[in-house]
């Protein structure tokens, strides 16, 4: 029963978000559905490993994922988190077919909807509404990236953390602190000091 229920809602959030950006007719929805790939990922499994070519954009129906890089000292640097309603990928690799520089893995068991490159190309050819959708998606990603860059360059650790928890309250609740520290470019010790200072003041 549970399984039937989740099969029926496999693409629910995807189309909800799509329709918020660009309203679709039921026919268009069916047309898109035929090219989508449903994919489950268990906690700690990879969607993408660095060096491979990123073959799809993943929309998160359920669960949480992160994209990260690994430096030469084997330290992980979190680039992005994604929870329900978000998309995650190595856009550079997806759009250029060059090897990916990110790893993407699941922080929780996840249900995803994948848009593969061949589906992407098919949609661009035959569905003008998709072009609008993907433009808005990439615009959003660009804005987020710019904000993040500015925040990392110009804000103090405490300001960064406050801004993060205010912008992404759900992620701050669900993701381990050391990953949030990594995302903000702080050591876990620094983040922990910042949090203590903030708590003491309250």
């Amino acid at each position: 029963m549970d399984r039937l229920l989740s099969l029926a809602t496999m693409y629910e959030l995807f189309f909800q978000k799509f329709n918020e950006k660009v309203p679709l007719t039921p026919e268009e929805q069916e047309q898109i559905k035929a090219y989508l790939t449903p994919k489950k990922l268990r906690k700690r499994q990879y969607l993408l490993q660095e060096g491979d070519i990123c073959k799809s954009i993943a929309f998160v129906e359920k669960g949480a994922l992160r994209a990260y890089t690994v430096d030469e000292n084997m330290n992980e640097h979190v680039i992005q988190f994604a929870i329900e309603g978000w998309t995650i990928s190595d856009l550079f690799s997806y759009l250029t077919a060059e090897p990916a520089t990110y790893n993407i893995d699941a922080l929780e068991d996840a249900e995803l909807v994948l848009i593969t490159r061949s589906a992407h190309e098919e949609f661009l050819k035959n569905l003008p509404k998709y072009e609008t959708y993907i433009r808005l998606l990439i615009t959003g990603a660009y804005i987020a990236l710019q904000r993040r860059l500015t925040s990392n360059l110009s804000l103090l650790a405490e300001e960064r953390y406050t801004s993060f928890t205010e912008t992404y309250p759900d992620i701050a609740q669900r993701v381990p602190q050391h990953m949030i520290a990594s995302y903000m470019g702080l050591t876990p010790e620094t983040l922990s000091r910042v949090r203590k200072k903030m708590a003491d003041r309250r």
């Binding site: 099969l7 496999m10 559905k33 035929a34 090219y35 989508l36 790939t37 449903p38 994948l114 593969t116 589906a119």
Partner: peptide, 12 residues
């Protein structure tokens, strides 16, 4: 088998 997996085999 095909009838069972039809939905989840999409594009695979």
């Amino acid at each position: 088998v095909a009838e069972k997996i039809r939905e989840v085999a999409n594009q695979k």
